[in-house]
């Protein structure tokens, strides 16, 4: 039987991979995917705690996180499309109007 600590460590590693991706990738869509990975890592933590504690609200929160992730995906991709229409790029280094 896998112990709770193992699940938590996997989740911490996944979270860090996602966070590192957000920091060094330059394509807005891939950054968004890295954020999804972070949310999934958190979901794993929540489910693991919920099942080991025998308390259900963690799983309910996971359900809501999935809802919110879907909503964020819709809005985020719409923003990406809007920006692509104007600038023909989603590379965040090319977006430099607001600096200073």
């Amino acid at each position: 039987m896998t112990s709770l600590a193992n699940y938590l460590i996997i989740s911490a590693i996944l979270f860090s991979i996602g966070a590192a991706g957000v920091l060094f990738r330059r394509n807005a869509i891939i950054i968004f995917m890295c954020i999804e990975l972070m949310l999934n890592a958190v979901n794993l933590t929540l489910i693991a705690f919920s099942q080991f504690l025998g308390e259900q609200s963690g799983q309910v929160l996971v359900f809501f996180v999935m809802t919110v992730a879907a909503a964020e995906a819709a809005v985020g991709l719409a923003i990406v499309i809007a920006i692509y229409r104007n600038k023909e790029t989603v590379h965040i280094d090319d977006l430099n109007l607001l600096k200073g």
Partner: peptide, 25 residues
């Protein structure tokens, strides 16, 4: 169903739609 099915299909659609160049990083 939701992540692998719905969200990622949406993401793939947008990637295909935008016809992106390879990223420099």
């Amino acid at each position: 169903a939701v992540y692998a099915g719905a969200i990622m299909v949406l993401v793939l659609f947008v990637i295909m739609l935008l016809n992106l160049k390879e990223e420099r990083f």
